[in-house]
Computed example of a mutant assay.
Amino acid sequence: MKVLISGASGLVGSELIHELKRQGHQPVRLVRRKGLTSDPEITWDINAGKLDAQQLHDIDAVIHLAGENIAGGRWSDERKQKIVESRVKGTRLIAETLAKLDHPPKVFICASAVGFYGNRGDEVLNDVSGKGSGFLADTCKQWEDACQPARDKGIRVVNSRFGIILSPKGGALKAMYWPFKLGMAGDLGNGKQYMSWIALEDVVGALAHMLTHDDLKGPVNVVSPNPVTNHQFTDAMRKAVICPMLPMHYWTPPAPAFAVKAVLGEMADQLLLASQRVQPVALLGSGYTFRQPELKAALDSLL
Rank of each mutant, 00 (worst) to 15 (best):
P247I: 10
G118N: 08
V203I: 06
K169N: 12
A255F: 07
V124W: 02
M210G: 09
P219E: 01
P168Q: 09
G121W: 04
G189P: 06
D145V: 08
I94Y: 07
I198F: 01
L65S: 10
T229Y: 05
D45L: 03
A146T: 08
K169E: 09
I59K: 02
N190T: 14
L16I: 09
V260S: 14
D187A: 15
S167Y: 08
P227V: 06
K80L: 13
L271P: 04
V28L: 12
K174C: 05
V88E: 12
S38A: 10
S133F: 06
T212V: 13
Y177C: 00
P27F: 02
N119K: 11
G170T: 10
A185R: 00
D187Q: 12
L283A: 06
S14Q: 07
A53S: 15
A259N: 02
L246Q: 02
R161D: 08
L207A: 10
G287Y: 14
A274H: 05
W75D: 08
E78Q: 14
I165Q: 01
K169F: 01
L302W: 02
L303D: 02
V31P: 12
G218L: 07
S275E: 13
C243S: 14
V3G: 07
D187H: 07
L182V: 04
G205N: 03
W143A: 05
L246M: 13
M184A: 15
E78K: 14
Q55D: 12
K82F: 05
G287R: 10
R33F: 06
E68D: 14
K174G: 02
W178F: 15
Q23A: 14
L20R: 02
T43W: 05
L264Y: 12
C243Y: 09
Q270A: 07
A262V: 02
S133M: 08
L125E: 03
M195C: 11
T229E: 04
N126Q: 07
V260N: 09
Q81S: 14
G132V: 00
K34G: 15
W178M: 14
G134C: 14
E85Y: 04
P225R: 11
Y194S: 10
N221C: 03
L98V: 07
T229A: 07
E96Q: 10
P253H: 10
D187C: 09
T43H: 03
D102E: 15
R120H: 03
L182G: 04
K296R: 12
F233I: 00
G130K: 06
G7N: 03
A150L: 12
L136I: 01
I94C: 09
L4N: 04
K174S: 08
V62F: 05
L188K: 02
T212C: 04
T37L: 11
C110V: 15
G132K: 01
A208F: 03
T289I: 05
V28P: 12
P293I: 11
P225E: 10
